[in-house]
Design a protein around this nucleic acid. Structure first.
Lengths: 220, 220, 220, 220
DNA sequence: CATGAATGAGAATTCATTCAT
DNA sequence: CATGAATGAATTCTCATTCAT
């Protein structure tokens, strides 16, 4: 079995000769990117080691030097997709100031922008990840965690809005869930049935939608 | 290559020879059901001919007698899922009477109920279909068509509501898209991250959501 | 295992009801013709039972009612091809009178005409038979016998010519073999590389060739 | 799909890494030889990947590493058979000097010697190739090309002889075709009906045959 | 680190043959 | 006789993974 090196730990000072500086992190990044590339185009099943390697410009053997097996690459990709989304949300929230409604809208913008200013491959790949999650416990765990994190955040943002407007927060969870499913559904439909959704419908409509849902809650 | 017989062709009555009546339709149904079963549990890639056959109680060779290849089974399944959903929507719309708002709500109920009173396997399978659609043109075509049909219907229902309330129908398409993505997202999240969504959130929240969106349109 | 009925023996008086007249011979003929058809176009390997059946307008099950297995059909076809050739040779020899040279020329005409006035499928099929003969002892036996018969006949004709011209018959076997190989080669090349051979070259050139060979034998 | 590497590409000299030198050419040669072996004995249909691998002492998976599919192996074999024959003809022509008649005889010797001093498997294999050519366009193309090349060469040689003897070259094409078919027929009959042809008849008889044909042409 | 040949366990598909009706 | 569903063995091809160099 292959040894898994801790990421970032340079494997230096290993022989008597001049040690080659470790490029593990770079290589792992390349490989994950290769998977993203292939998976977005062809799905996970066709993402063979050879195909990933070709997309990454690396040889099959090398993939197994840096990853123990194929699934580890998928896991790394899911982690990366989640991290990227997370970072974008974080950034936009930071820029949105303190007004609850503004922050909620910023969250929606950040999420849906995944398909606009960001890597469109990520949208397709995320759709595939959802299908892989059905059968692969480890992927499911990561997907569930990513979705759960989003949901918690949304709930907090929704609650803040409701509180500010002195409305009951009783349904905050459901409202958050509605937003979340609309976002996930938008990813999925735009990946699997491109052209069906109206151009640029997502962000404005979702924001109006959540505004309507907030307003429908009774004042306390 | 296997020939696909016209479904339902009755055994011909020629002379004294009355061979066994064709059971092709029944068998094809069994096989499609086997795929539904396996796919909901394990995804399409793991839905091997052997696995489908086992789930259907049939031998591998027989699957290829009734279907030319594996993809044809998938196509038949997608067609069936779409038809079932369509039938349910049709039935509920018929029962909903003529009030536009009622009909729109009935549509949402019918769609989301896919995961409640109906086959929960269909939800998972539909999530997998979305991923297969990314790479398989024929599946994509069917998925796109199914989604497109839903969208048209929703748009008509939304427009009717808006007209009744004397509001502009300018954004009918976007509102319909929001509902559609929320429905598709609900399927997906509940299949790929079960337990994350609040129990029974979907139908009531989606109805409230669409009501809010309708109300936000300006009167004409 | 299937029972093989003697050909031509009608299977009558078999039940209490009005016996269906046997159509075995007709059916067997159809089937052999189906094989000829498919084999000429696609080779023996692609001549599946289903394909033969389709070409013959019969169902797979029926083929195995009339033939014990696939190879028996091939054997019947080889026998038929040989018989047809034989009959044509016989007919032309009968029409050629008694002059040895004339008879020899008639033989060549009859053989090569296989590809001209006769079924062109037979030429292709015969080429395929040669390949099957390499591995199938039973086919090889039939092919060898057919070729052996031709060779003996040719040798006799050649000897008669030589004797008439008072030449040594020492090389009659070799001359006959040369004619035979040229005939067989013409079949093969025209089947496997159509268009390469000059149109209608065969009969006149072969006759001139054998005349040259005869003349080269020394007088005794 | 397997990629076909340029044959003969030397291992690159980059940095300290000197991986194992490619043995692709050697392996491909082994595999083609395995096919030759099996095909000569059992025909193409029985030349399964497993059988070829066994004959070559390689595992089935490896065959598909070096060849994209089974047919590519066949194509490589046909190319090799044609090249070998071509090389032998070339060599004998070179050794035959300038006399036209001598060169023509050398050609016949070279061709027919395929079955004498050379690999007898090649004769059988060539017979099988002819049958495969009937259905496989790529094989047919190669076979047609090989036969066409032989025919052109023969025609040139025949014409040279006729010119030297001041005879008309009008029938050069037909004479060449006669020689060609006799050669091809000799291959075929000796492969498919071994023992029927007189021992060692081919070369001398064919030479006498062509001499007779040449002499029959009228002087100009 | 890197290469790519090698392996072997599947997976889809084909097809002769059987057999209930 | 006839049908065509059913079986199961065989076959091609794929691919993750290993490993010598």
């Amino acid at each position: 079995m292959k040894v898994r090196r801790a990421r970032g730990k340079p494997a230096r000072e290993r022989g008597a000769d001049v040690p080659r500086p470790s490029n593990t992190d770079e290589r792992r990044g390349q490989i994950v990117d290769g998977l993203l590339d292939v998976m977005a185009r062809e799905g996970y099943a066709r993402a063979t080691i050879a195909a990933i390697g070709k997309a990454a410009g690396l040889t099959p053997g090398l993939l197994h030097y840096h990853f123990g097996n194929k699934q580890e690459i998928l896991v790394a990709l899911v982690e990366r997709l989640a991290a990227v989304l997370d970072a974008r949300v974080e950034a936009r929230l930071a820029a949105a100031g303190e007004t609850p409604r503004r922050r909620l809208h910023a969250f929606i913008d950040a999420s849906v922008a995944l398909g606009e200013d960001a890597d469109p491959r990520a949208v397709s790949a995320w759709a595939v990840v959802g299908a892989e999650a059905i059968r692969e416990p480890q992927v499911r765990a990561l997907y569930t965690q990513a979705v759960g994190t989003m949901l918690s955040r949304l709930r907090a943002l929704v609650s803040a809005c409701l509180r500010e407007e002195r409305r009951t927060t009783r349904n905050a969870g459901r409202i958050a869930a509605a937003v979340l499913t609309a976002i996930e559904g938008a990813y999925r439909v735009s990946a699997a049935a491109p052209g069906v959704l109206p151009e640029g419908f997502a962000a404005p409509t979702l924001k109006r939608m959540v505004d309507g849902l907030l307003q429908a809650e009774e004042e306390s």
